[in-house]
């Protein structure tokens, strides 16, 4: 009797573990099935080691890569590191054993993930770095880096906040809800925001708190900022989730957000392009979004094909982003991730 139960319990654990691992942050097809099933594509083999953070952006990016691979006849597989460096290193160790033609690496950490470059180099697998920056030398440790220009995004967010106020505004006080400390994107946006601010002497950051790309964290941070009595006119979120957390907290406190500072509305500007972010822009609560598009799989495969042909590649390939506002929201509504 007890043994039977023990097996039942073990069964539950095992299946749960399998679910949480294999499902991972993806409801696209299972990672392994692609190369192994009957319709295996004969083309060059590309493996993608994803950050695998439970964040919709990574799901969208990974799905996009997979679609593009199929279109171009590549044999593609993906692993999810669940935002853990150790898992990413282990993933890459597994990947290089199968000797793929290319490794696409989305680094979990700038420093920690650099180990993956060494492993790939030793195995002779060329690496394309995507999503974020990594420590290493282009042309030596990896082929090229492809991702959004986060410094530009930071500058753009600064500019959008500035432009939302009348030109003669005496002072624009900004709250920043920043991303996970140490991440390449966080660093870039913080740098851009501050750099641009030098050009606008009437702007200043009154509080900068971690939102960790997470709605609940950002919401708590915003509530505490409101409570601490700091006065502010605008909020800059490093990601839509943070902006929405801020909007929610402001709303609960009876404050309005929107695009009209003259009526006491707080200007919220952020980086992203999630479904919820777009909805909030449409609802008029979220002033502007600077996109951080996950839809650049084309550029990644262009780079792979070019490298395969022996072409020279720049060490950084910029992914272009756009500003989404009330005027163009309808045409971007479908692109939400």
């Amino acid at each position: 009797m007890k043994k039977v139960l023990l097996f039942v319990v073990l069964g539950i654990v095992a299946s749960a573990l399998m679910v949480s691992c294999s499902k991972g942050p993806s409801d696209t097809s299972d990672s392994k099935s692609q190369p192994d099933d009957g319709k295996t594509v004969e083309g060059p083999r590309v493996a993608y080691s994803s950050v695998g953070d439970p964040n919709p952006w990574f799901l969208a990016f990974s799905a996009e890569l997979e679609k593009e691979a199929e279109k171009r006849g590549f044999n593609f597989r993906v692993t999810h590191a669940q935002a853990k460096v150790e898992k990413q290193i282990a993933d890459v160790e597994d990947i290089v054993v199968q000797k793929p033609d290319y490794l696409v690496l989305g680094p979990v950490e700038t420093k920690g993930s650099a180990d993956a470059l060494r492993i790939a180099k030793k195995a002779g697998v060329p690496v394309i770095v995507v999503n974020r920056d990594i420590d290493g030398i282009a042309g030596e440790d990896f082929v090229t880096k492809i991702y959004s220009d986060f410094e530009w995004i930071g500058e753009k967010m600064c500019e959008l906040v500035h432009d939302a106020f009348p030109a003669d505004a005496k002072e624009i006080k900004v709250v920043e809800l920043h991303g996970t400390a140490g991440g390449g994107n966080t660093i870039g946006m913080q740098k851009g925001l501050r750099k641009k601010m030098e050009a606008y002497p009437n702007m200043k950051i009154v509080s900068s708190q971690p939102g960790n790309f997470d709605r609940a964290t950002a919401m708590k941070a915003m509530e505490n900022i409101i409570q601490s009595g700091v006065e502010f006119d605008a909020v800059v979120g490093h990601f839509d989730e943070e902006s929405i957390g801020a909007i929610q907290a402001l709303k609960a406190d009876g404050k309005k957000t929107g695009s009209n500072p003259a009526e006491g509305e707080i200007i919220v500007v952020g980086n992203g392009g999630t479904k919820d972010g777009l909805k909030a822009v449409k609802a008029g609560l979220y002033h502007n979004i600077v996109s951080v598009t996950p839809y650049y799989a084309g550029q990644v495969f262009d780079a792979i094909e070019a490298h395969a042909k022996g072409e020279e590649l720049p060490e950084y390939i910029r992914v272009d982003d756009i500003v989404i506002n009330k005027e163009n929201i309808d045409e971007h509504m479908a692109s939400g991730f």
């Binding site: 573990l17 919709p56 909030a280």
Partner: peptide, 20 residues
Amino acid sequence: IAGRGLAQIILGELSTSLLF
């Protein structure tokens, strides 16, 4: 441990927005 997996099966995705 099993609960988070089960929650994901129930939800069918990682996160569902309740915004608005």
